[in-house]
């Protein structure tokens, strides 16, 4: 592929490069490692037991993504046409791709649509929140009980970088899969699944079920949070010159998309395992 630049573009690009290098050298000794990494801003509210602690940033970003997706959905529905526009065709391609996956994997026909709703919702939410983790923005940290704003040296805080979000969805998938199984097979047959092939395997089966949400949630959390910290360290070492753009692109967009796909794919697989007869 050959890229041709006009004269004006060449002048602009070389001027941009010169300014970039000058600013990079100017900032060489002034860049500090952002404080408050690994600390989470938590707020105590007077509520009983486990509901008493909140992570405000996770809640705010989750609400932002909910609003974004809701707006997109309403916009999609309002502009539905027989001849699809580019946006409509893109959304339809993604959703029909997920639908075909579900149709292939789920053995019972009446559970195809519910599973599709769950997995497509999970996919969209996790995809958007991971993509948010690839865009530089304002992030928050805590050090010595003071809130610190990190302006544009880290990405936007993505909700999936918080383990609470991931565990919520993983446990939700576990419960949904078992509820589907009870609905399909009836309570007795479902209970029999735990003592098959023989009752000695009962603890193994229970541990196997409990291990599912653990690995399911920690996989996504490890990718997003670990990648974020790694990008932060590498971009600090290179003094924020050229490298962070590449790394944000890789970890935010490529890894984020693959992990969102893996999460919803595993959700489908866990549900389909429970539905086998």
């Amino acid at each position: 592929m050959k890229v041709k630049f006009s004269k004006g573009e060449k002048i602009f690009l070389s001027g941009f490069l010169v300014v970039y290098v000058i600013i990079a050298i100017w900032n060489l000794n002034k860049i500090e490692f952002p404080k408050g990494i690994g600390e989470v801003w938590q707020v105590k509210v007077p509520l009983p037991s486990i509901l008493g602690t909140l992570n405000p940033i996770t809640i705010i970003m989750t609400a932002v993504i909910f609003l974004l997706i809701t707006y997109m959905a309403i916009d999609f529905k309002r502009h539905l046409t027989k001849i699809p526009s580019r946006k409509q065709a893109g959304i339809e391609t993604v959703l029909s791709f997920v639908y075909e996956l579900v149709e292939d994997v789920i053995p019972v026909k009446e559970f195809v649509r519910p599973t599709f709703y769950i997995s497509a919702t999970l996919f969209l939410f996790i995809l958007f929140s991971n993509l948010l983790g690839g865009i530089p923005g304002i992030s928050f940290g805590v050090s010595n009980h003071h809130l610190i704003l990190n302006l544009f040296n880290d990405t936007w805080p993505s909700p999936t970088g918080d383990l609470n979000t991931n565990v919520t969805y993983a446990v939700m998938v576990l419960f949904i899969s078992h509820i589907f199984a009870i609905k399909l097979k009836g309570f007795k047959t479902w209970m029999k699944g735990f003592v098959s092939p023989n009752p000695i395997m009962l603890p193994m089966n229970i541990i196997g079920e409990l291990a599912k949400p653990v690995s399911h949630s920690l996989r996504l959390f490890g990718n997003i949070a670990g990648g974020g910290i790694m990008v932060l360290m590498l971009s600090y070492l290179t003094k924020y010159t050229i490298v962070p753009v590449v790394l944000w692109g890789f970890f935010g967009f490529f890894v984020g998309t693959v992990q969102a796909f893996v999460f919803s794919m595993l959700a489908i697989a866990y549900i389909s395992v429970q539905l086998e007869q």
């Binding site: 990494i37 690994g38 690995s215 920690l218 996989r219 670990g226 693959v258 992990q259 796909f261 794919m265």
Partner: peptide
């Protein structure tokens, strides 16, 4: 890519543990 992402998760657990030890 899907199965590599699944296989990679054990490596990410150890990355997480390493960061937790350091930080």
């Amino acid at each position: 890519l899907l199965s590599q992402a699944v296989a990679e998760s054990t490596g990410l657990y150890s990355l997480l543990i390493a960061f937790m030890i350091l930080l």
